[in-house]
Structure formats: C-alpha cells, structure tokens
C-alpha cells in the first residue's frame, strides 16, 4: 500500500516537473524555426531571429536601459537599506516591528497601483522626468528584498564579533566596514542579484513609467507581442532565460540561493 502510493506520487512528481519546464523548452525550440509564423512542429533551423533582435532598436536600447535602471535601483536600495537593517537589528530600536512594516510596505501594495500612483503624483503632479521616477519605483521594489535578506543574515551574525572588534580598538564605523561588511559581502551580492532580477523583469510599475523617450525591455517585448507573432520573441526570451541562468549561477556561487526561496515566497509575482 505504502509502496504503491509512493510510486504514484513519483509519477506525478515527474509529470509536474515536465509541465513546469516544457513551456520554456518550447520557447527555446521555436526560436530556431525558420518560418515567420510559429507553427508546430517547427520547420528548418535558423539563427536569424537572434540576429533580428539586434535590428529591433527597442530591444537593444530597452536592454541597455533596463540593465542600467536595475543596477542603479538595486545599488540604491542596498546603500539606503543596509544602514536601516543595521539599526533595526543592532540598536534596540523601539517599535522595530512598525519600521519593518513600513520598509516592507512596497510588497503590501499591488505593483500596478504603485506604478499608477508614482505616475500620477510624481510625473503628472510635480512634473519629474520619467527616468528618476522609474528608478524610484524600482528602488521601492528592491527595498523589501534588502530588508528581508539582510535582516536574516545580520541576525545570524554574532554580535560579539563586533564587540571584539570595538574592544580591539576599532570604532563602530571602522568595525562596520572592516568586520561586518567583509563577512556579509556574499549575502550583499546575492541581494544585489535578486534586486537586479526583480527590477529587470518588472512590468507593472515599468508600464506606467516608460514612454517614447524611455524604452524598457520587458515592456518593449510586450508591445512587440501586441503587433507581431514571430520567433523574435522566442529568441529574446531565450536570451532572458540565459540571463536568469547566469544570475542563478552567480548567486549559487555566493551560497545565497538557499535563502532566496524563502524571500521570494513573500511576494506575489506578476
């Protein structure tokens, strides 16, 4: 009886694994089909759709802008968030829970609403240019990752190590840079990558904050899809998947992936 249940469960496990990966494999396969309309099974083999990506100015500039925005926003979030996490975990702040809630509030409000609100009050309201508002939006997205992942790391980091450093004659600031940072650098890099991926992939906020002068990759693909149905999108998708793979590999090397799962759970994905 137990054996049989086990056998069924195994079959189900492999089936779901297949269903999880099959759609992505399909995307890869279609990117090599030579016909302009995607049909099954694909005919021929070509790399021209990959070449075609480069002839789409929206994709090329979109990639560059998305990359730049993601790097800037992630960097900002870490620079601003790290001191906050340090204060929350080390300084015995009253109402730490309350601060925590504020810092995590970007996950509590639907992203599409954040995008709309930023557009209305910052772009229309006080006439800020799109770029800084876009970076602000992505910064807001990234802050909760910094808060969650870094809090977990700092709570694990023995405070007596810092005390030993103070007593050895290093001031609190010196200790932070010479003892704390070197020990959490792996986590910081993992956080940076998580923020980067999340920002680079974001659509709901980006949607409101791009324009003719400001093209972002995910929304560019979205627009392209409205009017075209050819393997170029498959090719871009493959590039994006390779990027994801690269990021995961980097994080695995930082030993940060084990933590990532838990933190992703907290957030719905759009």
């Amino acid at each position: 009886m137990r054996q049989k249940k086990h056998w069924l469960l195994t079959l189900y496990g492999y089936l779901m694994l297949l269903l999880l990966l099959l759609p992505l494999v399909l995307v890869v396969v279609t990117s090599f089909g030579s016909q302009a309309a995607i049909t099954f099974p694909i005919k021929g083999f070509t790399l021209k759709w990959y070449a075609n990506i480069l002839s789409q100015p929206d994709f090329v500039t979109g990639f560059k802008t998305s990359f730049a925005v993601a790097v800037t926003a992630s960097f900002l979030a870490i620079v601003v968030g790290t001191p906050a996490v340090y204060a929350l975990t080390r300084c015995g702040i009253h109402h730490a829970n309350w601060f925590q809630t504020v810092f995590l509030s970007p996950t509590l409000i639907p992203e599409i609403v954040i995008g709309f609100a930023l557009f209305q009050s910052l772009v229309i309201g006080i006439k800020l240019p799109l770029m800084p508002v876009l970076i602000t939006g992505h910064f807001l997205l990234s802050v909760p990752y910094v808060i969650r992942m870094l809090t977990a790391r700092l709570l694990l980091f023995d405070q007596t190590i810092e005390e030993a450093s103070w007593l050895s004659g290093a001031s609190k600031i010196k200790t932070f840079f010479r003892v704390v940072i070197p020990n959490i650098s792996g986590t910081l890099l993992a956080i940076f990558i998580m923020c980067f991926i999340n920002s680079f992939n974001n659509i709901p906020i980006t949607l409101f904050l791009n324009g003719p002068s400001l093209t972002m990759l995910p929304t560019a693909i979205l627009n392209y899809l409205q009017n075209n149905y050819d393997p170029t999108v498959s090719a871009v998708s493959v590039i994006l998947m390779l990027l994801t793979g690269l990021m995961m590999w980097l994080m695995e090397r930082m030993n940060g992936l084990t933590h990532v799962n838990e933190h992703l759970n907290q957030k719905g994905q759009n």
């Binding site: 694994l17 999880l20 990966l21 759609p23 992505l24 399909l26 995307v27 279609t30 309309a37 995607i38 049909t39 099954f40 991926i197 680079f200 992939n201 659509i203 995910p218 693909i221 979205l222 899809l225 149905y229 999108v233 498959s234 998708s237 994006l240 998947m241 994801t244 793979g245 990021m247 995961m248 695995e252 992936l257 990532v260 799962n261 992703l264 994905q269 759009n270």
Partner: peptide
C-alpha cells in the same frame, strides 16, 4: 528547488509567451 526557482526568476513575459505558443490559434 533550483529547477523550480528558474521559472520563478524568469521574466513573466517569457513565461506567458510560452503559453501563447501552447494555447494560441495555431
């Protein structure tokens, strides 16, 4: 867990595009 994480970190446009390929008219 890594295998599951991969789609999770892949752009939502890509994941939905995959289903357009599967569910579309052709």
């Amino acid at each position: 867990s890594l295998v599951i994480l991969f789609p999770m970190l892949t752009n939502a446009v890509v994941r939905n595009f995959a289903w357009i390929l599967i569910l579309g008219r052709n």
